[in-house]
Simulated scan of single mutants.
Amino acid sequence: MDTPDGYKAELIRGKIIVTPWSKFYCFPPMESLQEQLKAHSPEGHVATFAPFLFSFPSAGRAYGPDVFVVDRAAFLGKERHGNAEDLSLVAEFTSSSTKDVDWQEKLRVYGELVPVYLVVDMPAEEITCFSDPSPQG
Rank of each mutant, 00 (worst) to 15 (best):
F24A: 14
F24T: 08
Y25P: 01
Y25L: 09
C26G: 00
F27P: 00
P28H: 11
P29N: 06
P29C: 11
P29Y: 09
P29F: 08
M30N: 01
M30G: 07
E31Q: 09
E31A: 09
E31C: 01
E31F: 11
E31M: 14
S32A: 14
S32R: 15
S32F: 08
L33M: 13
L33C: 04
Q34A: 12
E35R: 15
E35G: 05
Q36T: 01
Q36R: 15
Q36M: 11
L37C: 08
L37H: 05
K38H: 09
K38P: 00
A39D: 05
A39I: 11
H40M: 12
H40A: 14
H40F: 06
H40C: 07
S41W: 02
S41Y: 03
S41D: 00
S41G: 09
P42T: 05
P42M: 09
P42E: 02
E43V: 12
E43D: 04
E43L: 13
E43P: 01
E43T: 08
G44Q: 04
H45Y: 13
H45F: 15
H45T: 08
V46C: 01
V46T: 06
A47N: 01
A47R: 08
A47S: 15
F49W: 14
F49R: 14
F49I: 01
A50G: 03
A50D: 11
P51W: 02
P51F: 05
P51H: 05
P51R: 14
F52W: 06
F52C: 08
F52V: 09
L53D: 05
L53Q: 08
L53I: 00
F54C: 09
S55Y: 03
S55V: 07
F56Q: 01
F56D: 03
F56I: 06
P57D: 00
S58N: 06
S58F: 02
A59Y: 05
G60L: 13
R61H: 13
A62F: 01
A62V: 10
A62W: 03
Y63A: 11
Y63H: 12
G64M: 14
P65K: 12
P65Y: 11
P65L: 14
D66G: 15
D66R: 11
D66N: 15
D66K: 12
F68G: 01
F68S: 07
F68C: 13
V69Q: 13
V69F: 06
V70I: 15
R72Q: 12
A73N: 01
A74E: 14
A74W: 01
A74P: 00
F75R: 08
F75H: 03
F75Q: 03
L76T: 04
K78F: 04
K78C: 04
K78G: 00
E79Y: 06
E79I: 02
R80S: 03
R80F: 10
R80L: 15
R80Q: 04
H81R: 15
H81P: 00
H81S: 03
G82E: 00
N83L: 06
N83M: 02
A84R: 04
E85F: 02
E85T: 04
D86K: 13
L87P: 03
L87A: 08
S88W: 13
S88G: 06
S88V: 05
S88F: 04
L89H: 02
L89K: 10
L89M: 14
V90Y: 06
V90G: 02
E92F: 12
E92N: 10
E92Q: 10
T94I: 10
S95L: 13
S95A: 14
S95C: 03
S96E: 07
